[in-house]
Each structure stands twice: as structure tokens, then as C-alpha cells.
Design a protein around this nucleic acid. Structure first.
Lengths: 208, 208, 208, 208
DNA sequence: GATGAATGAGCCTTCATTCAT
DNA sequence: TATGAATGAAGGCTCATTCAT
């Protein structure tokens, strides 16, 4: 009965048509997830929305979970793509600029596809073993911790682990909440203030 | 007529026997929610876990949602009971103590039933109209905002709304994350440090 | 499993209070039958409507069927009461008047409680073995057949059985349809014409 | 949105296999309707009787009602096929022959599947908005009324509407009752007499 | 007797998944 | 490979009926 969760795509779609099918499926899944929520996202519905037969769906994804995982994966990758560059040059920046930059990146990341991001964060039963969303957070987190250790002399770092936790968690929470639930705070007009405030929060905390 | 969301209990269990049934149902619901997650919490499963017939379940709760709402309700009330006193005396405290107190309360609140708290926070499709969990947050939030405005002269408050958002969101996130995902940070030994750090984060942010 | 249909009341309610309970139950059943239809008439609902506990309901009637049977029974008896007198004096009347009288009686009978009559006729799965409604028809029918035989000389009666079938069936159908489905035809203004026409139909058929 | 009564088939079975499934379903529904009555015709039972999975049933029919509607539809169509020709040439016939013909047709129609006809007539909660069975009756009725008006000069027609009501209702009732409840009257031997009598009833009624 | 809490068979329906074509 | 018909476990829920109090 309890067949172990198959969460990996079945075959790497090498040929062109396959590629299109796979894309259509992921696109359709994301669309339904956003439009109707996780519970309404049945495989049959996804297949239909993708204009693909249910049989073909299972040709590429062995389970509903695999499909959702693929959507998350793709979302994460899109986020990475947006964020990676900015993240890379963080190391070279002075504290205030680094933090400001990090906050800005976080907001940008949440703005990529906020509705999808929200569904992923709130509705998806944790897929497989990993806490999918957090996977991405980890990188972020490790990177920031490294930054702190590299700048130990400028800052009051007692416990870099703990400090990283405090900073990354706060930034993530503030940007997530603002973008997804507080249009007043994250609007184009207001967002600069949000960045200022978040930066102030973190920088003052980190300084001696 | 069309009262879709049946989220209210059906009848107040008055007799002793029925009181026990209702308790068993809520207890069972909470247990399953924690152990298996929202999606696995079917009414049949809940009834079985409660050692009660499915018919009895529906005698008291008109839907799965109502049951979950009851669990949330109960959890919120437990939280309230723990928190209310502490929250009340906040107003009279100087900033540092007030913040420290707030952080401590938040941690305490998250420790009441962390696993249930997590399920409620992460998995429950928003029941009824209100964003159930946040209902509680709101109080917290309004209260804090009032505090800020009352202490305007001691603090650098440009926008009380925004400042409250930053502080409450951060505290909530830090305590939630620490208690639920970072046993190293929220352990009995370590928790004092966490309180220190969170307090520092908020207080420095608020000061001129 | 398939317990044989228990369609008889459980005990003759001899005492006064019991009598009241039984009445309330039948009344409630009839009301629900008319208002909501057979399918919505659950025993719990009936008990509630009657202001009686479900336990008491089963004290007096061993099944839902028994309850419905009792309603039909009561309706039939009411009908009888209205009709018997008129039916009795039929024998002495000349053909035209007898038929006219029969038609009038039939209309009167259908008007006693048309909505209940309709539910009984259309929705009730045939209870027990007997075709409940027709039970009453039989009397009617036998009586009319006797009349025909008694008036053989005035009429063209080849097969009294068949003639009675033709007449009784037609009268029953016309009055039933008119009263229940054709307000235009059975209205107080129009009903005299209906009687005329039905009488004409039957009398001409019977005459040499 | 709110399209409560799902009474239409879900998809037109195009492939051969599905055609067979759909047939099996309708056949099974009719069989159960006849054998056990409407209330016992549950979707699970129907699927089982059809030798089809419950899932397949719902692939083609969205509800029990839709299935029953399909059975009625099919029955009506069979009736139409039998009756249409005869009905068409009615207009050209002289009164006596026309009526005789109509009676004969009615009997023939009731003989197509008498037990099913009975269930449809007596037990089916009116499906959809229309009084399904009567749909067919209406045609019959309108047609007859037209005939009466066309032959006004030969007949005593005061109120064609009323006259049509009297005739059609009587014929329908007589043939229905005879075929379904009076094997003695509708047997192959006896049926000619029934036709004679019914014809006499109607013709005498209509003549000056 | 009356009460109403409890029961559980059974109904309707969805949906992930398989497999013959 | 693609298709879509078929499957059946499982979920939500109702209701006739029983039985301890």
C-alpha cells in the first residue's frame, strides 16, 4: 500500500516534444496551485489543464508529489537565478550595504511569484523528507554566517551561528510577511522605507 | 440558506457522557494533526482514534473543519490563559523590560504545544473567513503598537504601524523558528541567550 | 439484516399522554411529508418536529415505514369518513345522479388534503404488500360494480367488472389530475363544469 | 455556478469500450429500478450490477439522478419510436378510428416495458425541473387537442382544452391501469374488448 | 415510560494510479 | 509514446435504530 514517495521525475525529457509536455505539466500544476490551491490540484485536472493525457502525465511524473516537487524546484531555481549574483558580491560589501543588499534581494525573491510562494509556504504538506522551502533558506543562511565570521572584527559576534539565525530569520519573516500580507508596507512607494527599517534592525543588532 | 462553512459545533454537550465524547474527539483530532498532518486527518480516522463512532462525531461537529477549528480554538485559549497576565503588565514596564518580557512570553506561548502550533501555523487551510492563527497575533500586534505610541518620547518612532510590524513579526518568527526548528537555540540552557539576543535586536532598533 | 417490514403500531396508546404523543408523531410525519417530501422525512426529524424524543418515537412505531403507514391510514380514514355517507345513498339514485354524485365525492375526497394525497400517491415506496392507496379504491370499486349489476336493466352492461373498471378508473384519474395538477380545471368556478363533463363521460358510456 | 441538479451525462462515450460501459450502466439502472425500486437504486449497487467500477459510473454520469434521467430518456425514446408513426396519421382519420387508434397506441406504449413504466410513473421524484414523464404526455395532449379543434364540426366541443384533458387523462389512466395492474383486462385475449370499451367511452363523450 | 447519546451500515463522490489499445 | 477508460480505496456524511440511564 504505502508506496514510498516517488519524488523524482521519471525520465529526463530529451526529445523536444517531451520537453514541451513536461513544461506544460509544470506550468499547469503551478497555475492550478495558485488559482485553486493544493487540495484542488488533482492529477486529472492538471493533465487536462496541461492539455495532456493523464497517461502522459504519469509517463513523466510518477506521482502527484513529484509534480509538486518539480514546481517547487523550478520556483527555487528561478529564485536562485535572480538571487545568486547579488548574493555573490555580498562578501565584498561593508556591513550596512551588505545587509541592505540582502534585504533587497529577499524582497525581490519574494516578488518573483508571490502567490506561488505563498502556496508553497502555507499549503504544501512537506514533500519527501526535506523541508523543501527551507532548502533554499539554508544556503542563504550558510552564506550569511560566513559573512559574519569574515567580518568578526567590525561586529559584535559572540555566536555567529546564533547571530545568523537571528538575522536571516528576521529578514525572511519581514520580507515574506510584507510582500504576501501587507501590500501597504511592500508597495512600490513604501518598499524603500521597509528596506531602511529592516536594515536598521539588523545592522544595529550586529554592531558593537 | 447557503451557509457553506460549517465550522461551529453542533450542540453543546451537556450530559457527562457526551462531554467525554467531545473531549475525546478534540483530543484525537489534535493528536492526528500533530502525528500525521492535516491531510491525513479524516473524520473516519479521527472518530476511530477517539474511540467513537463516526455518527457521534457528526452529532457534535458538522465537518472536519469544525473539528479543526475547535482544536485551534482550544489551543488559542490555552495560549491566552498563559499569556494574558504577562501581557497586561507590559504597559507599565520600561522599554528593555517590556521587550524582554514580550519575547519571553512568545517563547512560552510557543512551548505550550509546539508541534500542534506548527501544524496550525503551517498546514491548516485558513478556516472560516478569518485567518484563525493571526487572530491571536493581531491582539499581540495592536497591543504592541499602543505601547510604542505611549512611549514615543523614549523611542525613535517615525511610523508606529511599521515599527510594530517589524518588531512583532521578528519576535514571532524568531521564537517560532527557535522553538519549533532549533532545539539547540531554544533548549533550556540556551534560551536565555536567545531572549537576550532578541531583546537586543528589538530594543536597539527602537532606540533613538 | 433484512428484517421484515414492521408496519404495525407497537402498542395501542391507551393512556392519555401516549395518545397525545402518537398524534404528535403522525401529525409531524404528515407535515414533513407534505413540506419536504418523503426523502427528507427522517425519523430523527420527525421526532424533533413532534417535540418527542427519538426513543419515544420507537416506543410507538417500530420503523419509519410504520409511521408513514399510519399517516396513510389516517388519511384514508378521513377520506372514508367524508365519503361513506354519500356513497351509501348512491344505490337508491338514478344513474345520472348516482354518477354525478360519485364524481362530486371523488373531488371532495381529493380536496381533503391534496398535498398529502399527492405525496402518498407519488412518492411513497409501496409499503408492506398492499398498494396502500388502492385499498381505498377497491371499496369504491366494489360498490360501483354492485350498483351496475343492480341497474343492469337501465344500462348496457355486458361485463360489469370491466365497466366498473372503466368508470372508476376514469373518475379517479380525472379528479386526481384535476385537483392536484390542474388548478384551472378544479377551481371553485370551474369545478361544476368538470363534474358535468365527467358525468357526461360516464353516463353516455353506460347507457344503451 | 450553482448548478445543483446534475442530470446530464458527463461525456459522450465515443470509443467502443466506453459505449459498452454506458450501456451496461443504463441497463443495470433500469433493472434495479424495476426489481428493487428507486430508493434501493444506489450508485454503488448500480455499478456492481453493471459489472463496472464505481469510478467508471461517475466518469459518465455525475449523479444517480443523471442515470435515472438517462433511463427515462431511453424509455421515452423507445416509446416515441413505437408511437410516432401511428400518431402522425391520426389527423386524417375519422373520429371513431382516430380514438380507437389512440387507445391502441397507448396500450402498445405501456406494453414496451410496463414494469419500468410503472416505476417511472410512480416512484421517481420529479427529476430536473420538468415532470419528465409528463413531457411525453404533453405532446400527446397537444396533438389531441389540435385534432379536436380540427374536427369541431363533427363533435360537441365546448371547451377543447377541457375535452382534451378528459380524453387524454382517461385513456392514459385506463391503459396504464389495465396493463400494469389488470392482467385479466389487458391480456392478449381481452385487450380488444378493452379497446372497444375505451373507444366507446371517448367517442360517445365527444359526439353531439 | 421517556430520553438522547451512541452506533455503524451504507450512500454519494473524488482522485491517484494502472493498463489495454 | 500517447491515450483515456477503468479501477477501487478512501473520504465526507446521513439516518434508521438501539440501549443505558
Amino acid at each position: 500500500m504505502a508506496r514510498k514517495p516517488l519524488v523524482n521525475p521519471r525520465k529526463m525529457a530529451s526529445q523536444e516534444r517531451s520537453r514541451a509536455t513536461v513544461d506544460a505539466l509544470i506550468e499547469a500544476t503551478a497555475r492550478i496551485l495558485v488559482r485553486d490551491g493544493f487540495d484542488k490540484a488533482s492529477t486529472n485536472r492538471i493533465a487536462e489543464e496541461a492539455g495532456v493525457s493523464i497517461g502522459s502525465l504519469y509517463q513523466y511524473y510518477p506521482s502527484k508529489e513529484a509534480l509538486v516537487a518539480a514546481v517547487i524546484e523550478r520556483h527555487n531555481q528561478q529564485t536562485m537565478r535572480v538571487v545568486r549574483g547579488a548574493l555573490a558580491e555580498l562578501a565584498t560589501l561593508p556591513v550596512e550595504q551588505a545587509v541592505r543588499s540582502l534585504v533587497a534581494i529577499a524582497i525581490e525573491a519574494h516578488r518573483i511569484d508571490p502567490r506561488l510562494h505563498r502556496v508553497i509556504a502555507e499549503q504544501i504538506p512537506r514533500v519527501g523528507q526535506l523541508e523543501n522551502v527551507e532548502t533554499f533558506s539554508r544556503d542563504n543562511y550558510a552564506l550569511f554566517r560566513a559573512y559574519l565570521e569574515a567580518h568578526r572584527d567590525e561586529l559584535r559576534i559572540v555566536d555567529a551561528e546564533l547571530a545568523a539565525f537571528v538575522c536571516v530569520t528576521s529578514i525572511e519573516a519581514l520580507t515574506h510577511m510584507a510582500v504576501l500580507h501587507r501590500p501597504d508596507i511592500a508597495s512600490d512607494d513604501a518598499v524603500a522605507t521597509l528596506v531602511d527599517e529592516a536594515t536598521r534592525l539588523i545592522v544595529r543588532y550586529l554592531r558593537e
